[in-house]
Design a protein around this nucleic acid. Structure first.
Lengths: 335, 335
DNA sequence: GCTGGCACTCGATGCTATCGAGTGCCGGAC
DNA sequence: GTCCGGCACTCGATAGCATCGAGTGCCAGC
């Protein structure tokens, strides 16, 4: 039975708790504008909200704290991604106005921007380049049996892989292999590379095969050079137990967990995972706000913000939405 | 007046404090083996050590804590880089046995290894590739006026830069520019690229000039893709004030500060900066242990460990020395 | 159904007493 | 002279205790 008054009360509790990190009492709630009833009435409703699982009482004679369910309701029905402040808008604007340089640099800076806007940790992940096409392939010798494959993709990324061949291969053969591969691979979609027919030279074919298999495996995992985590130090400020900080940092250091996290949450568009919802045990006290960004209509990656469950959702939602949209637009008109 | 007994006392205080993080009292010291005098005598010596600036007393009636000067003396004259444990040695061994893949991957994993060994944050930085020679240069078009220069260097690194040209340039012209640049740049030392003579085509020359200048500027700054900071979460465990953690993390996030820090400390070989010695204000409570690694006789980068001033120096020194040596050897026989 | 009133809870705060690890110093022994 | 035992003293840490007050639940009355 969630009538308007209870919604209002829940909203005040959540907002107040996000601000102060202190359990919120009935008197505080009653003093808020838009709540016109007395503390006693608020108390009655709070009991109901607690029974329904939206609020929690740390101990008798303490105020109430939102549960994950409470935050969820708040995010789903009580909050519209409030607009950004004037100067934050300007910050985003001027960032994208002067952003330049390579894709990686841009994603990296975007991560800093997001942390700066929200004061939480931020994550920026490029999608695996399955749909990108190959613009260039080259084999470069580094020593007797060591070869580097370097491929430039249509999205501006550069994939490289280190090959160790069974036999030595000379410069001439490498050049031949490069030419041969280029003929068959340039223009192909990375996630669906065509078979490369034999060239008649077994050494060339061996190198080619190694290169193709390296590229194939690069197609399906996000380039580790396109995963950026920023603002971890800001997380420290949000928690007061050193131990929590340690746990969260530990997760942020494991890029594959972070990438999985974003993937998991990113069902459709802008979304939020609160507390336990994302299923990463060490991040029970954290929420994640994520949005994909699209380059020329295709999802090209995701950006997100990781903060405490009591994060400032309206602001985080607004920032993530804004930045993902601008980033996508920026990367589109650039290509 | 630093006689043998005082050295022994200082050593015990430092070792004890590193272990327990508690001020060390005279009774504790007197109980240690190798100290054969009574607590009273220890106290007298402690007063002297304090007057000479090696120890500090947080307050009357507390034990003594080493000062930076005390740690310095400890590191310089009381400690020989103790050998690693058996299983740590094995850990390093098996790491380098199965290490493989591209340069960046290797450096990244090395950073993890170091954090794992020491339980502190670790930093791995590749040197700016000034001395590397160019193995391959290529220009790849990404859109009307956008071009990517990709150069492969003799050290296995791949440098790329994004160019925005004044005029559109077609595929044919780009290929011509690539050929032209290759003729003049392949084999050249990156830090001392020769002038590229005009080709007779102004568009080609414009692209070439832009590419060369991008490469030149890449020569002198360490590739941001070759800076790896790992194990930040382990720092959190070493401090108990959230605020300290925050400060240190903030620094670790600023790669240029970290790089500068390593540079500054890296006078000659294995070295240590304690507390204030490295001149980074937010890291007053931290020490850094650094060593260069050499590939084929040339310094190719540096690795280091960042921990609290009360870090376990013998272990850190041993780990850094061992890993830098093995890393260098590994990268040498590979090339 | 809302509200004011009221007794009750319980963490937080502050005070005091006590404890004990540690110190400095002094006077005596080797 | 150097070392050591003894002793009074300091002072942070810990524990106990009273107090405070924000907050609650409940009930009777409007």
């Amino acid at each position: 039975m969630m009538d308007e008054r209870r919604k209002a009360i829940l909203r005040v509790v959540v907002e107040e708790y996000i601000e102060t990190a202190q359990p919120v009492g009935s008197t505080h709630v009653a003093r808020a504008p838009h709540v016109t009833v007395s503390p006693a009435t608020v108390r009655n409703d709070m009991v109901a909200l607690e029974q329904d699982g939206y609020l929690h009482q740390p101990h008798t004679s303490a105020g109430r704290v939102p549960t994950d369910k409470g935050y969820r309701f708040f995010v789903d029905t009580l909050v519209q991604p409030g607009p950004l402040d004037e100067d934050e808008l300007q910050q985003v604007g001027s960032f994208f106005a002067k952003a330049h340089g390579a894709l990686e640099e841009m994603l990296h800076d975007t991560s800093r921007l997001l942390s700066g806007l929200t004061d939480y940790a931020s994550v920026v992940v490029g999608e695996p380049p399955e749909d990108a096409t190959v613009r260039s392939v080259q084999l470069v010798g580094l020593g007797a049996r060591h070869v580097l494959v370097v491929a430039v993709l249509s999205n501006g990324a550069v994939t490289k892989a280190h090959l160790e061949l069974a036999d030595e291969i000379g410069e001439g053969r490498l050049a031949a292999a490069t030419t041969h591969l280029s003929r068959w691979l340039i223009g192909a979609v990375l996630g669906d590379l065509p078979p490369v027919p034999p060239s008649g030279d077994s050494l060339v074919d061996a190198a080619g095969a190694a290169a193709v298999s390296a590229l194939r495996s690069a197609a399906h995992r996000p380039d580790p050079e396109q995963v950026f985590v920023g603002g971890a130090s800001r997380m420290a400020a949000a928690f007061d137990a050193v131990d929590s900080v340690r746990r969260v940092l530990g997760i942020l250091e494991q890029q594959y967990v972070v990438v999985g996290l974003l993937r998991g949450v990113l069902d459709r568009g802008l979304s939020v995972a609160i507390g336990g919802e994302h299923g990463v045990e060490s991040l029970l006290e954290c929420s994640v706000v994520v949005a994909p960004y699209e380059v020329e209509g295709e999802v090209a990656g995701a950006i997100g913000v990781l903060g405490p469950t009591r994060m400032h959702y309206p602001k985080a939602l607004a920032a993530v939405a804004m930045v993902s949209q601008r980033l996508g637009r920026r990367l589109s008109d650039d290509a």
